[in-house]
Amino acid sequence: MLNSSSICRCNIKRYPQSAQFDGKRFNNKIPRQQLGLTEFAKLFWDFAFNKPKNTAPESALPLIKLDAQQLAAAADNSVFRLGHSSLLFKMQGKYWLTDPVFTQRASPFKWFGPKRFQPAPIALEDLPPIEGVILSHDHYDHLDYHTILQLKDRVRYFLTPLGVGDLLISWGVASEKITQLDWWESKNIGGIHFVATPSQHFSGRGMFDSNKRLWCSWSIISDDFRLFYGGDSGYFDGFKQIGNKFGPFDMAFLENGAYDRRWADIHMLPQDTIKAFIDLNAKWLFPIHNAAFDLAFHAWNDPLNQIVTLAQEQQINVSMPQLGQGVQFLQPQQEKKWW
């Protein structure tokens, strides 16, 4: 049975005001590499029948279970790892979620597709009231229909790139809660400046909506901190531009997982993540996009092992909390290896 969100039946809008929109689709500054038919067929075959056995852990990962009481007692200016790219921020005493996915599969299907290694460290119903949800793009491992349906009446703000907000409206999210932004546009909420910054990726949830919605990263800035949330991206010169404009960042949450040389232009390899971090002029690296779903051919813990080794070589501070663990992003620390 198809998930209700598998095929978008909403009217696709046009965004003539956006420099990224060509009248039909959104575009990267540098066009994506395109696989030929033979390469694509081989990739599909490998995903279906030729996956290594170590792309998922053999047993449950270490996890700290969370509840609203623990979160209330946690220090301000903290962030909690929920798995993949889902993070829970506590800023100014209020809670913000990035790309929340709480369902069992990152897929349009309930019975098929990438399955979570284990449940999130906190159930949706146990979350405290959420001030805002920050979305980077519309892919299933970053935007989940059922999660949004359960959150929509408990969230004050939804911040999205262009087009993603229109999709949320079609799902029943109140339009007055939604702010959708083009690259370099911003929204100030309670003294926190949320800037939709560029990324090099793509969008689409079905056969007919490819690149009909924009993708972005986020620079989150206040008088007390500067944070960068990368969403999904290949390595590109935009990181240096963002770093020059909004850095230095106290912490950068950067993609490190689900990579392969065949799609390195839209998902960074570990060495690219290090280059992006340096370009951003950040103090601490917090690797995301890992430890939740099997989305590539590398061992599930390869991103974690590689990024630690590369960071040590470059004398980069890395924060690697386990699932459910909180970190104060102005006073982080090097955590012990848990994987």
Results as ranks from 00 to 15, higher is better:
Leu43His: 10
Leu63Thr: 12
Ala41Gln: 03
Asn77Ala: 13
Asn77Pro: 00
Phe49Trp: 08
Glu58Val: 15
Asn28Lys: 01
Phe80Pro: 01
Ala68Asn: 07
Leu61Lys: 03
Phe80Asn: 03
Ala60Glu: 12
Lys65Tyr: 00
Gly36Ile: 01
Phe21Trp: 15
Phe26Met: 09
His84Val: 04
Phe21Ile: 03
Leu43Asp: 04
Ile30Val: 14
Asn50Ile: 00
Ser18Val: 01
Pro57Ser: 09
Ala75His: 11
Phe21Pro: 10
Leu63Gln: 14
Leu35Cys: 04
Ala60Pro: 00
Ser59Trp: 10
Pro52Asp: 14
Leu61Arg: 06
Ala56Gln: 11
Gln70Leu: 13
Phe40Leu: 15
Arg32Trp: 05
Asn27Trp: 01
Ala74Pro: 02
Leu37Asp: 08
Ala56Phe: 07
Asp46Ala: 10
Leu66Glu: 02
Ser18Leu: 01
His84Pro: 05
Lys24Met: 06
Leu37Trp: 12
Gly23Phe: 00
Gln70Ala: 07
Ser78Asn: 08
Ala48Asp: 05
Ala75Cys: 07
Thr55Pro: 00
Arg81Pro: 01
Ala19Val: 14
Thr55Ala: 05
Pro57Cys: 08
Leu63Ser: 08
Ala74Phe: 03
Phe26Gln: 06
Leu63Phe: 04
Phe44Pro: 00
Asn77Arg: 13
Thr55Ile: 14
Leu35Gln: 07
